[in-house]
Amino acid sequence: MSSVSLSVYLVLALILFCIGLYGALTKRNTVIVLICIELMLNAVNINLVAFAKYGAHPGITGQIFALFTITVAAAEAAVGLAALMALYRNRKTVHIDEIDSLKH
């Protein structure tokens, strides 16, 4: 029996998720915000893979889900970065607090 149990992985994922969340909510550079979101997704992936091994019904499905998540996250990163490029061209800034057109 392994001495590393499910909850330890979950707590680690929780910590990483919280770090990512805090960064996404406070970082000023849009690129970092995007990468923080990637970190949050990674934390979710840890959960999925951990459940695949230690969950109520262990199986390969969790890993498949993690793969899909990685795929979608990669697509998201690409699109997000492209949007950032377009924004930068127009506003000449990557600082998220200078992008406030939602107010108007």
Binding site: M1, S2, S5, L6, S7, L10, V11, L14, A52, K53, Y54, G55, A56, H57, P58, G59, I60, Q63
Partner: peptide, 18 residues
Amino acid sequence: AVYLGVYRLDFGEEGARL
């Protein structure tokens, strides 16, 4: 809050053949 939910979570099974 989430920690309180997960820190004892243990299903007792292990996918040994993964």
